[in-house]
Design a binder for these strands. Structure first.
Length: 338
DNA sequence: AACCGTGACAACCGCCGAAGC
DNA sequence: AGCTTCGGCGGTTGTCACGGT
């Protein structure tokens, strides 16, 4: 049973012969591909347009990088997969010369097994239950020992096509009553960020500290969760009043800074998004955006944003992953207060 | 030499959303 | 507004090479 476009004509299937490749290559390089459905006809191929497209994209395209994945590429895939999941096309965009099919195959044949052998769930990047040393409560609950244990920034990402400034929500601390906030509880403070701060729902990430994830209910909404995991980087507990860390925003990027100023008086965020030249979505590289907010750290109502886009399931998994997969002792020494 | 398991890669399938009519 | 076509995507299957038994 072929694809609909294949049913009308006699269609060859299976592996492509060198002659077919030659025909397709010659046609595309001279005529381009305005309409894939008409390519086989004009190129003299007994294939469906879809098959031609796939062959071109995955094999014949001149800008493809062949050969094994490098360790760096592997790490990029893992990092982005942690954030985006099985969005192979999005992941591949961060790997010049690689196709989604390649990335997917590499993941399924290599990375997946490697993660499993390390005791990690390849889908969630958290420890497999058999490897857990700390047990947690049910997935709907999260508990910690301090109200001000972490900072959450939730950004309401715009489409890359529009220039609306994203909404950045900040919230500090979760209830220590062991359950996550619900929609009826105090809402995070909301500030309007400059439009240059974020242009993509998937470019800004820091594997161990910041998680950004599309909300399943709204593809334009992403969450960035920053946990207070500073001491691992700085080998010290961060000061209460000034907090700064770096993180990666892309494979060649390094800056994403959040600076927290006087507790209770406000917060200052300094975001530095690095660029990926090949990605239209990542336009605002190297802009240092500072925004001062008067957001109360206690959380406040806001007049222009009522959505509750926190992905608490994600949050929990992130935190579980964070604390269990990296450094158990870290939990003991972590000072939660700023 | 034959068989089998595995890994890597290629290709197909079915679904979905956008665009055009 | 509803239908069709098309391109894009992720999941799955097929194919081939290779090494071990």
């Amino acid at each position: 049973m072929g694809h609909r476009c294949c049913t009308k004509q006699k269609i060859k299937r299976g592996l492509w012969s060198p002659e077919e490749d030659e025909k397709l290559l010659r046609y595309i390089t001279t005529h381009g591909h305005k309409s894939w459905s008409s390519v086989p006809k004009f190129a003299g191929l007994q294939r469906c347009g879809k098959s031609c497209r796939l062959r071109w994209i995955n094999y014949l395209r001149p800008d493809l990088k062949r050969g094994s994945f490098t360790l760096e590429e592997e790490q990029i895939i893992i990092d982005i997969h942690r954030i985006l999941g099985n969005r192979w096309a999005q992941i591949a965009k961060h790997l010049p010369g690689r196709t989604d099919n390649e990335v997917k195959n590499f993941w399924n044949s290599c990375i997946k097994k490697k993660l499993i052998s390390q005791g990690l769930d390849p889908q969630t990047h958290t420890l497999l239950s058999s490897h857990r040393r700390i047990t947690t409560s049910s997935s709907s609950n999260f508990s910690n020992n301090n109200n001000d244990s972490f900072l959450i920034i939730t950004s309401n990402m715009p489409n890359s096509a529009n220039n609306n400034a994203p909404i950045i929500e900040t919230s500090q601390g979760l209830s220590s009553s062991s359950s996550l906030p619900t929609n009826n509880q105090a809402q995070p403070s909301v500030v309007q960020a400059p439009s240059s701060i974020v242009t993509s729902s998937d470019f800004c990430y820091e594997p161990s500290r910041i998680i950004e994830n599309n909300n399943s209910n709204n593809s334009n909404v992403s969450n960035i969760i920053c946990s207070h995991n500073y001491s691992r980087m700085n080998n010290s507990i961060p000061s209460k009043n000034s907090l700064l860390w770096n993180s990666r925003t892309d494979h060649d990027a390094e800056d994403f800074r959040v600076q927290t100023l006087e507790e209770g008086q406000g917060m200052q965020h300094s975001l530095h998004a690095a660029d990926d030249d090949d990605d239209d979505e990542i336009r605002e590289a190297n802009n240092i955006i500072e925004m001062n907010t008067n957001a109360s750290l206690e959380g406040s109502n806001n007049d222009n944003n009522n959505n509750n886009n926190f992905d608490f399931g994600l949050l929990e998994s992130v935190l579980n992953s964070e604390f269990m997969s990296h450094d158990i002792n870290y939990m003991d020494e972590l000072a939660w207060n700023f």
